[in-house]
Amino acid sequence: MSTPPGYFATLYAASADPWDLAGRWYEQRKYALTLASLPRRRYRAGFEPGCSVGVLTRQLADRCDRLIAADRISAAVAAAAARTGDLPQVDVRCLAVPDQWPEGEGSFDLVVLSELLYYFDDATLQATLDRAVAGLEPGGTLVTVHWNHPVPEHVRTGPEVAGAVAAVPGLYLLSELRDADFTLQILLRRNRDGSAPRSPAEQEGLV
């Protein structure tokens, strides 16, 4: 069973920023590493479900021509929309993935699943990853970030999620950071012929 929505609603009812995403150095460092790991300087269209209050959203927006951010909790959506209100390329929506994946938006070249997947049971995790792969254009980037430590409300730990993500057909693991506290994965959707996309060095003719 996935973590129930009421868990998150209770957290946001008690605090505007339940995990202190805007204040903790842990979060700032993790976001910096996430952004530094992106293999492209610029993205055409990004999707960030589970955006919470939009701290990472605002930073991702600097790298995206268009960015859809989403959360299932209305208080989080309102906070993220307020935080990114001066950024015309950002569209914040109230969506619960995987069932409410953006439709009719075309493909994305960036999907960010940060601190999200460990809340999902097996079926929901698989469905979310399937939607992410299907929504990515060939060569597109999938970012996943997972808290490594056990939490009662989490279905699984970061290393467990990372193993499941790395095994998804159609994805190529470009890089993986195994920090003591979190696991960061950068995966690329394979080309239509199944080959691995070019690395950043290959794209610039260094290899």
Rank of each mutant, 00 (worst) to 15 (best):
A76T: 14
R72S: 04
R42A: 10
A96R: 02
C51R: 12
A70G: 09
G104D: 00
K30C: 08
A70K: 03
G54C: 15
L35W: 07
C94Y: 03
Y31D: 08
K30Q: 05
V77E: 02
P49M: 02
D71H: 05
D91F: 06
T84K: 09
R58H: 04
L60S: 13
E103G: 08
C64G: 08
G50M: 04
R58G: 10
A78V: 08
D86R: 08
C94W: 01
L67C: 04
P88Y: 01
T57A: 05
P39M: 13
L60V: 09
L35R: 05
S37P: 12
L38A: 02
P49R: 02
L67E: 05
T57E: 10
L67F: 01
R72I: 00
T34P: 06
R40W: 14
P102Q: 04
R40A: 15
G50W: 06
T34K: 13
S74Y: 00
V90N: 03
D71Y: 02
A96N: 02
D99G: 12
A78N: 07
V55C: 12
L87P: 00
K30V: 01
G54T: 13
R63H: 14
C64F: 06
A36D: 14
G46D: 07
C64Y: 13
A32D: 15
G50V: 07
W25T: 09
A75C: 03
S52N: 15
R41M: 11
A75K: 04
E103K: 06
A69F: 01
C51D: 05
T34S: 12
R63C: 13
L67Y: 00
R63D: 15
L60I: 14
E27K: 09
R66H: 11
A80P: 01
W101H: 10
R58L: 07
D62W: 14
Y31W: 11
S37C: 15
P49W: 02
A82M: 07
A78D: 14
A22V: 03
D62S: 13
L95G: 00
C94T: 13
L87R: 10
L38I: 07
P88Q: 04
L35Y: 07
P98M: 02
K30R: 14
A75Q: 11
